[in-house]
């Protein structure tokens, strides 16, 4: 099967086509231009150069979050539009899982865990921890050790120090990796490694490969375009404020009883 994947979740922008576990085409930009203006021209020129008509795709995949709220919506809305118009299934892949999958094969060592970090602003990163295992058939899907969460780099360093067993190291990847690497290294020393630049912020190819694997394992994983949503991880500020206010009011009311 042939699958097209889109990643506009972070600072980098990428599109890729995979078929039967191979990457047929891959294009990426990291020049600070708006994803909204670049995504479709990049996708169109890639497919043209690869001589791959849209109609020959079997499915679409999208990096669905966490990430920049705006970037996620550009990627997900575009993928939904393509999938709906082409009447093909759409698979959503976690940004963190794709980033981990992207980083792990660079290290032929089971003692290396992947720690993707994505810019979450407010001095926080979206992160999770993954383990990968090389097998005869290639690298398995990353196994999630921590659920996705937003934490400060300082808290992340403490969590990693507690989690990493003797001899284990974590490879820092994702679009915030470079930003927090120095601080993480100061706290964790040789137990933290920085993924090489080409593996840090272009996740469309990993997304395509993961989506294909999931689709083949269980075609029920593919959904109608209408059912795919972005995975923001964080509620909007207005929702958080409202819930905090309601909780405070409830506490006050309970205190009066």
């Amino acid at each position: 099967m042939t699958i097209l994947a889109v990643d506009a979740a972070g600072k980098g922008l990428s599109v890729a086509v995979a078929a039967e576990g191979r990457i047929l085409a891959n294009a990426a930009l990291n020049v600070g231009l708006t994803h909204s203006q670049r995504l479709l021209p990049l996708l169109e020129s890639l497919l043209k150069a690869a001589d791959l008509p849209l109609a020959e795709l079997d499915a679409l995949a999208v990096v669905s979050g966490p990430g920049s709220f705006t970037g996620l919506r550009i990627g997900v809305a575009t993928a939904k539009g393509l999938a709906w118009a082409l009447q093909k299934p759409l698979l959503a892949v976690s940004t963190l899982e794709a980033a981990a999958y992207n980083a792990l094969p660079g290290y032929v060592d089971e003692n290396i865990l992947a720690c993707p970090v994505l810019d979450a602003r407010r001095n926080e990163v979206y992160t999770a921890l993954y383990a990968g295992r090389p097998t005869a058939a290639g690298w398995t899907r990353p196994e999630q050790l921590w659920p996705p969460q937003a934490v400060s780099p300082a808290d992340l360093a403490v969590k990693l120090a507690v989690t990493l067993a003797e001899g284990q190291r974590a490879v820092l990847t994702g679009d915030a990796a470079e930003l927090i690497y120095a601080d993480m290294q100061a706290a964790l020393g040789a137990r933290i490694i920085l993924a090489p630049p080409e593996r840090r912020c272009f996740n469309a190819s990993a997304c395509a490969l993961l989506a294909e694997e999931r689709f083949k394992a269980d075609p029920g994983q593919a959904t109608l375009p209408a059912e795919v949503s972005a995975f923001y991880l964080r509620a909007s500020e207005a929702e958080r404020n409202r819930l905090a206010r309601l909780a405070a009011e409830k506490e006050q009311a309970d205190a009066h009883v």
């Binding site: 909204s36 995504l39 479709l40 996708l43 169109e44 849209l54 709220f69 705006t70 919506r73 550009i74 809305a77 575009t78 993928a79 939904k80 539009g81 393509l82 709906w84 118009a85 082409l86």
Partner: peptide, 19 residues
């Protein structure tokens, strides 16, 4: 609203390309 506009614009562009 920029975030709202982007959803419609991204979706419309994808439809136009695909169709």
């Amino acid at each position: 609203l920029i975030g709202s506009l982007l959803v419609g614009v991204s979706y419309a562009k994808a439809l136009a390309l695909a169709a």
